[in-house]
Write a protein that binds this DNA or RNA. Structure first.
Length: 460
RNA sequence: GGCUGAGUGGCAGAGUGGCUAUGCAGCGGAUUGCAAAUCCGUGUACCUCGGUUCGACUCCGGGCUCAGCCUCCA
């Protein structure tokens, strides 16, 4: 029985889809004005894993992840670059897709873009005005009237009075209340704009997600996810807008992933302490990054450090080492591991515990591979099947172990030549020469393993 | 100030009212020409103070510390 921590309830609850066997899920995607950093990678990987597990559990999932391709920062960046908005967003959307693919993140079923969803956005704003939940300010902008929505603050556990008291919100004379937020902004000269009943302009940030999610998934759907920082105000505002518009309950389960931290601080653009996915992929392989992300439960902080990425590398080496040299086989009948794995993932997607099951399997494989190859091979097949749910261990073990970031290292040919030389020295019992060659390779990051079947090597 | 979440062994990171998490690192052994990989064994822990309990790291309450949100942010 799958339990998910629901931010709205502040506890785990048994997941029950609105429609039996089906899950409709929406995740707030990127604002495409720059390259994705590790924090974005976490959202991509975490919710990809959620979708994989739901599908593995038998649900028919419709997964929507939007793209915000119009906002202040995009306009600003395009101006700075002297580049058109379309060109800028096109570039970063492509980069995001490349990064996702590298991290073995499957494409969402739908990937709506704000600029392609204007009719739905405008309709929604019109309905909100008709329902007296929104008003046109003296400056021509359209605002949402927070005071009219009774449940405001329920997602983030905030009280309207507290918010007003601590308001650091810009004083804006056009708003009736400091907490009101903009639905439609009148275009300034030279800004991109769309026609609307309230003049040429563009949507506020929050309304696009309400419009796109309900357009793709209906007024009431199962899961809405995103980073913790979106809970307030973004998701709070989405609830207010959507429910005031449709009159229906918006979302059953709200999921929020924790931050990537660096030196005990949130990794973020504004703090400038971020690493882009691309920077990290120059040093670590994508699967190592994915493993690193999944080595912490999605709501916990994820501590970025080279040391922790190195550990991910070591852990994957152990798992792939267990998988090598085994014949193809059907997955084992033995379901204890699978049950344990499912139990871990059923508990709010506890990936660290699920990974521990894979290590138990690796241990078992190593123990029985000599005496019972059939069992070892079957276990290996089961292990890969479970790992696939996490998006891991799908590569050829030997290739993985010999692979690595090889930009300035030895080529495979050079390595193989040296290994052959060393084997000749070993045949001659010339241990001095043999050890010299091993040290030489080791300095180049190559580890040798002698066995009855011959010498093999791998990159450290 | 208001709200949220967290404090576990050298590091990372799960979990449980009494019974080995797991990985890396350490130590001893097997194996090896030497190694590596693997196996066997092993050490180190649950922020603090109270309470509940036969028994709490695990439940409850106070405190301390940390992170985050309250402004764009995944």
């Amino acid at each position: 029985m799958l339990e998910i921590y629901n931010t709205l309830k502040r506890r785990k609850e048994v997941f029950e889809p609105i429609e039996p066997g089906k899950v409709r899920m929406y995740v707030c995607g990127m604002t495409v004005y720059d390259l994705c950093h590790l924090g974005h990678a976490r959202v991509l990987v975490v919710f990809d894993t959620v979708v994989r597990y739901l599908r593995y559990s038998g649900y028919d999932v419709t997964y929507v992840r939007n793209i915000t391709d119009i906002d202040d920062k995009i306009i600003q960046r395009a101006n700075e670059n002297g580049e058109s908005i379309d060109k800028l967003t096109g570039r970063f959307i492509q980069a995001m897709h490349e990064d996702s693919e590298a991290l073995n993140v499957q494409s969402p079923d739908l990937e709506p873009r704000a600029t392609h969803s204007m009719p739905a956005i405008i309709d929604m704003i019109q309905t909100l005005i008709d329902n007296k939940a929104a008003y046109v300010g003296p400056n021509g902008d359209v605002y949402y009237d927070v005071s009219g929505f009774a449940g405001y603050g329920s997602l983030s556990g905030k009280k309207i009075e507290d918010l007003r008291a601590g308001a650091r919100v810009d004083v804006d004379e056009s708003k009736q209340d400091a907490l009101d937020f903009v639905l439609w902004k009148r275009a300034k000269p030279d800004e991109p704009n769309w026609d609307s009943p309230w003049g040429a302009g563009r949507p506020g940030w929050h309304i696009e997600c309400s419009a796109m999610s309900t357009q793709c998934l209906g007024n009431h759907f199962d899961i809405h996810g995103g980073g913790m920082d979106l809970a307030f105000p973004h998701h709070e505002n989405e609830i207010a807008q959507s429910e005031a518009c449709t009159g229906e309950h918006f979302v059953n389960v709200w999921m929020h992933n924790g931050f990537v931290q660096i030196n005990e601080e949130k990794m973020s653009k504004s703090l400038g302490n971020f690493f882009t996915i691309r920077e990290i992929l120059k040093i670590y392989r994508p699967e190592e990054v994915r493993y690193f992300i999944l080595s912490s439960q999605y709501r916990s902080p994820l501590h970025y450090s080279d040391d922790n990425l190195d550990k991910a590398r070591g852990a994957l080496a152990r798992l792939y080492t267990a998988l090598r040299d085994l014949p193809e086989a059907a997955p084992a009948e033995d379901t204890d591991y699978r049950e344990h794995f499912n139990k871990a993932m059923d508990d709010d997607f506890n990936s660290p515990e699920a990974l521990a099951v894979l290590f138990d399997m690796a241990h078992d494989i190593n123990r029985c591979r000599e005496k019972d190859v059939k069992r070892a091979a079957a276990l290996a097949a089961s292990m890969r099947k479970l790992a696939e749910v996490l998006g891991l261990l799908q590569q050829d073990p030997e290739s993985w172990l010999q692979g690595g970031i090889t930009s300035d290292g030895m080529s495979d040919e050079q390595i193989n030549d040296l290994v052959v030389q060393r084997d000749q020295a070993r045949d001659n019992k010339d241990w001095a020469e043999s050890d010299r060659l091993r040290d030489l390779l080791q300095d180049a990051g190559i580890l040798l393993e002698d066995s009855a079947g011959g010498t093999r090597w791998r990159r450290k």
